[in-house]
Amino acid sequence: MIDADRLKKNWSLVAAHGNQVPLYFYSTLFLTHPETRDLFPMNMAAQRDKLVTALGAVVSNVDTIDAVVPTLQALGRDHRKFGALRGHYPAVGEALLATLEHFSGPHWTPAIAADWTAAYELVAATMADAADAAAHYTPSWWDAEVVAHDRRDLETAVITIDPGTRLDYLAGQSVSLCTSLRPRAWRQYSPANAPRTDGTIELHVRAVDGGEVSTALVSLLRPGDTLRVGPATGTALTLRPGSGRIAMIAGGTGVAPMKALIEQVAAAPRPTSLYWGARSPAGLYCLDQMRALAAHCDWLEVVPCVDEDLFGAGARVGAPADLAVAHGRCSGADVYLCGPAGMVEASRKHLAGAGVPPEAIHFEPSGA
């Protein structure tokens, strides 16, 4: 039987070594199994700690593994886009065990090694089984043509892609993208539309500092180019059933999944308020479109929010969550949050402090 408490304590000990852990892990993996190098982007800066941190966190919490089986299955299906095969999992496991042993030092014991091995094998089997099953009914990825690229400002573009066939997803989910401009570097984006009959997908992309993929998508991508698209993942922001009020709180391009949810709600209208924030009115890059949508839907309210409105653009001054609470829009509502990680966390705390029940607050955890 796996001792989950022992694994958690051991992982805390290892994780205390910080960036040394992923550096050792990848060095070990690539030296002992060089064929795995092609599964990862050329620039490892963004990738550096993601895999090993996720592995350690998930495997060490093996006592709650049943609760995350759906997530592990989704990860297994999604990882096919990297070219990950069942045969790669043992290589990753060996590198993980070597890393754990190295940083555990004298605390490493045969019992801990056996626990880690059993826990990893359980996680790996769950992911690999899901990937093998998915191979029978869905592609590993879709090659989608860029049919429109609308540069809204220096940092933001609205991109429309056509996968050529309908890609199954729910409003509020995310899809991962890879461009030949930045090979093997995948990033998550939420479609800004509910599924369409023609299969096209609208994406809102903001170039972030140091973001090689987002910068390429905004500045270098052109109509006619091709993007590789991975399967849809995540359910944190998908619409909950019911007929009650909905409050949406978004920052920047976090409005994209909200727009998709609004399109879904239109099929069975519910009172819905969107509080969308940016530093200035210029950051509300599709405000005219959202206002036009509200003008045609008597159940929809759109409230633009800014840090300062120097030119009288008609936006409310203040944080979206603060204003939504002050206006009474969150009381008794399902609340959906999306935006920069800091904004989401601050909004979540403000909502909780205002008495909004935790189960009514829906957001994608940072790093998910």
Rank of each mutant, 00 (worst) to 15 (best):
L7C: 06
L13T: 12
N19I: 15
V21H: 03
P22A: 13
F25W: 01
T28C: 07
L31M: 14
H33S: 15
P34A: 04
E35H: 12
R37P: 06
R37G: 10
N43L: 12
V52Q: 10
V58A: 14
V59R: 00
A67Y: 03
A67W: 02
G76K: 05
H79C: 02
R80S: 11
K81D: 15
K81H: 13
G83H: 13
R86W: 10
R86Q: 13
H88T: 04
G93T: 06
L97K: 12
A98Y: 05
T99C: 03
H102L: 12
G105H: 08
I112P: 06
D115R: 04
A119G: 09
V123M: 09
D132I: 07
D132K: 04
A133R: 15
Y137H: 15
T138H: 07
S140D: 15
S140N: 12
W141Y: 15
V147P: 14
D150T: 14
D150V: 12
R152K: 05
D153M: 09
L154A: 15
D162V: 01
P163E: 14
P163T: 08
A171W: 02
S176Q: 15
S180R: 13
W186L: 07
R187F: 08
Q188N: 08
Q188C: 08
P191F: 00
I201T: 10
D209S: 14
G211T: 09
V213A: 03
S214H: 10
A216P: 10
A216M: 11
A216Q: 02
L217V: 02
G224M: 06
R228P: 01
V229Y: 11
T235R: 11
R240D: 02
P241N: 11
P241C: 03
G242A: 01
R245Q: 10
I246A: 01
M248K: 01
G251D: 09
A256V: 06
M258F: 03
K259L: 14
E263S: 00
Q264H: 02
V265R: 00
P281W: 01
G283C: 09
L284P: 09
Y285G: 08
C286R: 10
A295H: 06
C297D: 15
W299C: 08
E301Y: 06
V302G: 11
V303E: 04
C305G: 05
V306Q: 01
G314T: 11
P320K: 13
A321K: 10
D322N: 04
L323A: 09
G328E: 05
D334P: 05
L337Q: 02
L337H: 03
C338K: 04
G339W: 07
G339Y: 01
G342W: 02
R348C: 04
H350C: 14
G353W: 00
E364N: 07
P365E: 10
G367R: 00
